[in-house]
Every structure is written in C-alpha cells, then in structure tokens.
Amino acid sequence: MDLLALADFVLVARHGGFGRAARATARPKATLSRRVAELEAALDLRLFERGARELKLTEEGRALSERAGQLLTELEHTAASIASGGETPRGRLRISAPLLISQTAMGKIAAGFALKYPEVRLEVTTEDRPVDMIEEGFDLVIRVNPDPDDALVGRIFLRDRLVAVASPTLARPDGERPVPAVVRSAGDRQGWTLKTPTGPMILAVEPVLAMSSLIMARDAVRAGVGAGRLPLSLVSHDLADGTLVTWGDIDAPEITLWTLYPSRRLLSARVSAFLDHLKQSFPAGTPDELASFVGRS
C-alpha cells in the first residue's frame, strides 16, 4: 500500500473535501484527487461518495480513515520525538484548556513547566468548546466531564464538587421562600437539590444576576447579592476565612478534569512531561489541593 496515498486520503477525510485539504496544505487539488483515486484502485474499494456539491466517506472509507489516522498520528509523534532528540522534551506543545482553570491555575502551571523545560515552546489556548485535536493541531486538551470519545484516551487529574454558598449576611433558606441566586444564564430558574443528613432538599431560587463566568459569579456572591452554586475549589478560601458560608453540597455529578490525547502509545516527550508536571502539581487531585495551589484571589 502506498503510504503517501493513504496519508493524502486521511488528509482529505479530515478536511471534508479535496478543495479544503488543498487550501489548508497549499497542495494541488488535482494531486490529492489522483492520490485518493490510486488508493481506491489499489484497495478495490470506493472510499468517498462524490456528490455534486459534497464529498462523503463511505462506510469503508470512514473505518479506514479512523484507523489509519490514529496510526499516522503515532508515526508522526515517533518521528517528531526522534527529530527532537528522543526523550528530551523540546519543540512546540499546543494545549487547549477550559476557561475556569485557565483563569485560576494555568498561568502558574504553565510557568512552572516552562521553567522546568525551557526547550519546549508551550502554547495554551483557552476555550470551553470541544475541539478537534487533529484538525486544529493540539497535542493535548483539558476538559471538564468530557463525553466519551473512541478516538481519544486520557486520565483524570483533578476532582471537584459543587456547593451552595452565600455571604453570612444573607438569610439561610427556610425551605418555604425562594432565595436570591446568582446563576449562569438568565433563564435558569431550576431549583437546587442540596444534600442533607436527612436526605435531599429542594431549594427554590429566584435569579437576581446571570453571570457566564464562575469567577464573576463568586465575586457577586461575595458581595451579598445572592447565593451561588460554585465549585468547592473556587470558594475554599472564602469558606475558611468566613467571607462565605456553605448551605450544603449540591446533589450533582462529580466534577472531573481530564487530560485527553489521541493515543496512549508513543506519546511525545513533551506531552509525557506535561502530564507528569500536572501529576506533580496535583498529586492527590482534590478540590483543597487545587485551592491551595491557586491561593487566595
């Protein structure tokens, strides 16, 4: 099998068409089309359904694209590792991370890594949306409670949980009247379920502020405008010094932060070094450990 033709097929499949792949790589569209046609002929399989305006993978094409893409990525990582000096971490490392941990901890994490590995050019992009690692060129992504993805593997490096908190000046709920609340969106009027020794308790809320940022929400809760449903790590220092008080844990799934990457085999020295750095930064991976790492803000 012609590996160059296979690589061109994977390239076209990832970009969703010959024209897009040609523009992204500055290669002739005709060359990519010819390579894919040669691969189809060699395999005696139709890999694409060619419509008037769109190109779709056949079932066989999709299966080949997924498997070949993983193998080619591993080959690329192996070649990059060899070219960059084997096990010595150096070269470019691109990471995508969600907003909250980027605002609270990523600066310190990245600085520590850069001091430890000065030959690595670390680039961190902050966004909460799911990203296509291969398409967008990321080596590693950090995500909160990610959906399962057969193309990615990873590990949990931090755990957190939601708590209902408020200023000590705000009256505690009596279970009868709604409490003023700082929420994530204006239309969020759903009650909060609190864990209590006697069982779950539904707390009715009346939104008074909508804040898309959890840090903004925490600051508003500190000011006493309403209660908030926030990660424990974000308010741990406030609870310790009495700036905020807790009304109880929220009955909700645990918050887990994952590092995700395309394959556990043949990881580059850069990715392996960053994973080890996270493990050293958060050996237990608890909310209090994250709060201690971040410090008071």
Rank of each mutant, 00 (worst) to 15 (best):
D2P: 15
L4V: 14
L6H: 02
A7P: 00
V10D: 02
A13D: 05
R14T: 15
H15W: 12
H15A: 13
G16F: 05
G16M: 05
F18P: 01
A21Q: 02
T25K: 13
K29C: 08
A30G: 14
T31A: 14
L32Q: 02
S33K: 14
R34S: 09
E40K: 07
E40R: 06
A41N: 07
A41Q: 11
A41M: 04
R50I: 11
R50K: 14
G51L: 07
A52Q: 11
R62G: 06
S65R: 05
L72F: 07
T78Y: 09
A79K: 10
A80K: 12
S81N: 13
A83I: 01
S84T: 06
E87T: 11
E87M: 11
T88A: 10
G91D: 04
I95N: 05
I95C: 04
A105N: 01
A111P: 01
G112F: 07
Y117P: 00
V120T: 10
R121K: 08
V124N: 04
T126M: 13
E127S: 12
D132G: 11
D132S: 15
E135C: 06
E135Y: 15
G137Q: 08
I142M: 11
N145A: 07
D147N: 09
D149F: 07
V153C: 12
I156K: 09
F157L: 07
R159K: 13
S167H: 05
L170G: 03
L170D: 02
D174N: 15
G175V: 05
V179F: 08
A181T: 12
D188H: 14
W192D: 02
K195V: 14
T198C: 01
P207V: 11
A210G: 12
I215R: 12
A217R: 11
A223T: 14
G224C: 01
G228F: 03
L230A: 05
D238T: 09
L239E: 08
L244C: 03
W247S: 01
I250V: 14
I250W: 00
A252T: 00
R265D: 12
A273K: 03
Q280I: 04
P283D: 05
G285K: 05
E289S: 06
A291E: 04
V294G: 04
R296L: 15
R296S: 14
S297H: 14
